[in-house]
Amino acid sequence: MCLSGFHLDQTTQDGKTREEEGIHVLHRTMELGITHLDTSNVYGPCNEVLVGKAIAGRKLDCLATKSAFKITSAGFGMDGSREYVRSAVGKSLKWLDVKQIDLYYQHWVDRTLPIEDTWKALKEQLQGAKSRTRDAEADVIPTCRGLGIGIVAYSPPGRGLF
């Protein structure tokens, strides 16, 4: 979910900042029982900082974020390299102000290198993370299971709900 950055203007019609409005939306969402939040580093550091502020002191079942999709001076690009994954995880931990991300995954596929390279880089980042069981189609699971990686559907039905 992107509550800041390039998707939205930075102020609302009533003069509130997008951060204030975003934190209010997330607090209300959690009050209503939503316990799985998903963001991305490509939404900008302001979005992960916003999510971090909103979840501070609150219990979630799953905090998810992702990388491999990035904004460069040339526009949007993909980077599934080990170095980028490691850097992106570190930045997300800092911006979210957490010690652990429950689910960290690949936002888009970097077709310039074998997908296994990105998945291995993601697996390296699992140190200390909780293991969770996820179900998916039988033809996808064997590869992911062998690497210890979960699967998340792109743009689940809840997109736009908030």
Results as ranks from 00 to 15, higher is better:
residue 121 A to H: 04
residue 8 L to S: 06
residue 149 I to D: 01
residue 84 Y to K: 00
residue 60 L to F: 07
residue 77 G to C: 06
residue 102 D to C: 08
residue 146 G to A: 07
residue 1 M to G: 05
residue 34 I to G: 15
residue 153 A to K: 11
residue 33 G to M: 02
residue 59 K to G: 01
residue 104 Y to C: 04
residue 38 D to Y: 05
residue 150 G to R: 08
residue 124 E to V: 00
residue 78 M to H: 04
residue 9 D to K: 10
residue 114 P to D: 06
residue 157 P to G: 07
residue 91 K to S: 10
residue 138 A to R: 14
residue 11 T to I: 12
residue 107 H to I: 00
residue 85 V to H: 00
residue 75 G to V: 03
residue 151 I to S: 05
residue 87 S to I: 02
residue 137 E to H: 14
residue 50 L to P: 01
residue 85 V to G: 01
residue 108 W to H: 09
residue 136 A to K: 07
residue 26 L to R: 03
residue 75 G to C: 08
residue 65 T to H: 01
residue 18 R to F: 10
residue 116 E to T: 03
residue 64 A to H: 01
residue 9 D to Q: 11
residue 54 A to N: 13
residue 116 E to D: 08
residue 74 A to T: 12
residue 34 I to N: 15
residue 123 K to V: 07
residue 95 W to C: 09
residue 146 G to Y: 04
residue 141 I to Y: 06
residue 135 D to G: 12
residue 57 G to K: 09
residue 16 K to L: 11
residue 4 S to A: 06
residue 31 E to L: 01
residue 129 A to K: 13
residue 120 K to R: 15
residue 154 Y to I: 12
residue 109 V to L: 10
residue 113 L to H: 00
residue 94 K to A: 10
residue 137 E to R: 13
residue 109 V to Y: 06
residue 151 I to W: 06
residue 142 P to I: 07
residue 9 D to L: 10
residue 101 I to S: 01
residue 156 P to F: 13
residue 119 W to P: 02
residue 127 Q to E: 12
residue 147 L to H: 02
residue 98 V to G: 01
residue 151 I to P: 05
residue 10 Q to K: 15
residue 22 G to K: 01
residue 162 F to K: 04
residue 131 S to Q: 15
residue 19 E to Q: 15
residue 99 K to D: 13
residue 76 F to R: 02
residue 133 T to H: 12
residue 13 Q to S: 14
residue 41 N to Q: 11
residue 114 P to H: 04
residue 116 E to R: 05
residue 107 H to N: 03
residue 1 M to V: 10
residue 121 A to K: 03
residue 113 L to Y: 00
residue 52 G to L: 02
residue 162 F to H: 05
residue 6 F to D: 12
residue 157 P to Q: 11
residue 102 D to I: 03
residue 117 D to Q: 15
residue 129 A to H: 09
residue 68 A to N: 03
residue 125 Q to F: 06
residue 121 A to P: 02
residue 44 G to Q: 04
residue 12 T to Y: 09
residue 158 G to R: 14
residue 2 C to A: 13
residue 77 G to S: 14
residue 2 C to D: 07
residue 150 G to E: 12
residue 110 D to L: 00
residue 160 G to V: 04
residue 100 Q to E: 11
residue 50 L to T: 02
residue 65 T to A: 00
residue 27 H to S: 12
residue 85 V to W: 03
residue 3 L to R: 09
residue 15 G to L: 04
residue 75 G to S: 12
residue 72 T to V: 05
residue 138 A to G: 10
residue 95 W to G: 01
